[in-house]
Design a protein around this nucleic acid. Structure first.
Lengths: 225, 225
DNA sequence: TCAAAAGTGTTCAGGGTACACCCATGG
DNA sequence: CCATGGGTGTACCCTGAACACTTTTGA
């Protein structure tokens, strides 16, 4: 059946994940300091080789689970990166994904044991391979999704204040937002509902806590920041 | 250097191209009727295996050139498709691209000699592999780009009437547009300028011919349909 | 003379943006 | 009592959408 196929070259295939989380209110990215060649000593995204028994999506989820202990995480493909010399070790084609995780729920020991750590998104160091380019592409997709779909909420804890949410949006979008306009938009998106509880950790007055209601969102799909 | 790499599996890698062109004013897609297994007898996108000496982008351009004789064509990556059984012949990961070509300038003999033909975009038959899914993804990207960047013009001849352009936009966006609003938007995009010439082929009265001015676009980047 | 496509402005509603002050409370 | 973050409403502008008639000319 595949005689013709056999005459063709085959390639190493990896997935690279831009894993984002809110570490103490600051958007952070999971990076590893590479312990072996190629690019030893450089920072890089977390990744891994695609295994024969898994699809690309499955490979990305596996890599994420191995590092964070999390499953059922929101991931989206960014694209394929296939320049010939993108990996100095050998020719590897990488398919990039981004993942938005709930920081509080992840397994920090797993992260540490994989030589990875959380880096503030504003202070990303120089990265090996073409990973800076991957992040640029990711950010472009992310910004578009953030204003049109409630994916930003996947980074927030179950209950969150509107200040937390606004701060997250400002970081991702790269500019300040008007507080009253922001809150107006949130009100219009019925899927973000007050829990009735109050957070008194971050302010003296206390701030109302909200939650994301997926059922409501599934019904009206209305969300626009 | 790459001892660790060698322990990993390697995969066949292909590129699949959604090649679009305006055939007699109708948006059309280049398809092949497969002459051999797998999926023999089924329609499919044009594609080819990635070669060791080329990047993914280069592979896509090569496939396009082989089939149409064109180079310097606008292409954009759609994404990687890597379900395990997407290709019944063997495991193949495909990176999809779309290309917008100037139909008049392509080499029809090359198309024919590759067993390919142009199919009206509205009448795409059932396709082999996961190519229908690729087209769905392409269309989504395409619609977004069409209204925000002047890429639709790459499908039109050097000189075109606003009716031709509007008809193209209606096809891609999937709904009718208001003629006056459409022409207002075109006027606001200074990069679309009148040539002073008149086309009398498609109407008795004659229609003004326009052209895309890339220099102007590079300056103001203003385009919004 | 008529069919067929080209060409042309205005009105209205809704959404986006700009903007400033009071509230509650812990320290 | 004051510093800190929480919370609230309005006015304006501009963009997007709806809408109908005249022009030209080949057949």
């Amino acid at each position: 059946m595949s005689e013709f196929y056999k005459s063709n070259h085959r390639y190493y295939l990896s997935v690279d994940c831009v894993v984002l989380g809110l570490n103490s209110g600051r958007l952070s990215i999971l990076l590893t300091k590479r312990a072996f060649a190629p690019e030893e000593g450089k920072w890089s995204l977390i990744g891994g080789f695609v295994q024969p028994e898994e699809s690309l999506n499955q490979a990305a989820k596996r890599v994420l689970t191995q590092l964070t202990g999390l499953s059922n995480v929101y991931m989206e493909q960014v694209g394929a990166f296939g320049e010939i010399d993108r990996d100095p070790g050998d020719r590897v084609i990488s398919v990039a994904y981004y993942a938005l995780i709930n920081f509080d729920e992840h397994d920090r020991r797993k992260v540490m044991s994989h030589n990875a750590c959380w880096v503030d998104f504003a202070d990303i160091p120089e990265l090996g391979f073409d990973h800076s380019s991957i992040i640029t592409h990711t950010l472009k997709k992310l910004r578009f999704r953030f204003v049109n779909e409630p994916i930003g909420l996947k980074l927030l804890p179950r209950q969150f204040t509107l200040s937390q949410m606004q701060s997250l949006y400002e970081t991702v979008l790269g500019h300040r937002l008007d507080k009253r306009n922001f809150r107006k938009r949130v009100q219009e998106a019925k899927c973000i509902e007050s829990t009735g509880e109050v957070d008194k950790l971050n302010s003296k007055r206390g701030a109302a806590l909200y939650r994301f209601n997926a059922e409501i969102y599934e019904k009206d799909k209305k969300f626009k920041i």
